[in-house]
Amino acid sequence: MAESVLRRLATDDEFVKRRLTVLDRWIDSGEIEPWLAVVLAEWCRTSEGRKKAPLSTQGFEDLFLNEETFAVMREQVDGPWMIYFEQCRSLRANEAVMGFLTQLESLSAQP
């Protein structure tokens, strides 16, 4: 097995370790791109990941938009990081704009 690209932390408990093992296996078999495995590994350390909940759109975006997490992910392996960062940022901005538009629409419908 090749050396893992996924970082190990002293604070990783059994929950995280198990998932890193699975991700390493997927990387070795070519089932998943290393950069995407890194994303999932970091997600496992978040509160959403630890709840065994589905990976939400917000959870996915948060990984890229959190400055510290994003830097940690980029350090581990090469990947299309900036592309997805820009996409997540656009999505988040878009949500805000759509919220304003919806409010505007409601206001304009009022007499």
Partner: peptide, 16 residues
């Protein structure tokens, strides 16, 4: 990509 990641995430929990 998010859809793929979410699918992997579900499998990840199950296999782990």
């Amino acid at each position: 990509t998010h859809g793929r990641a979410a699918t992997f995430a579900n499998r990840l929990h199950l296999e782990a």
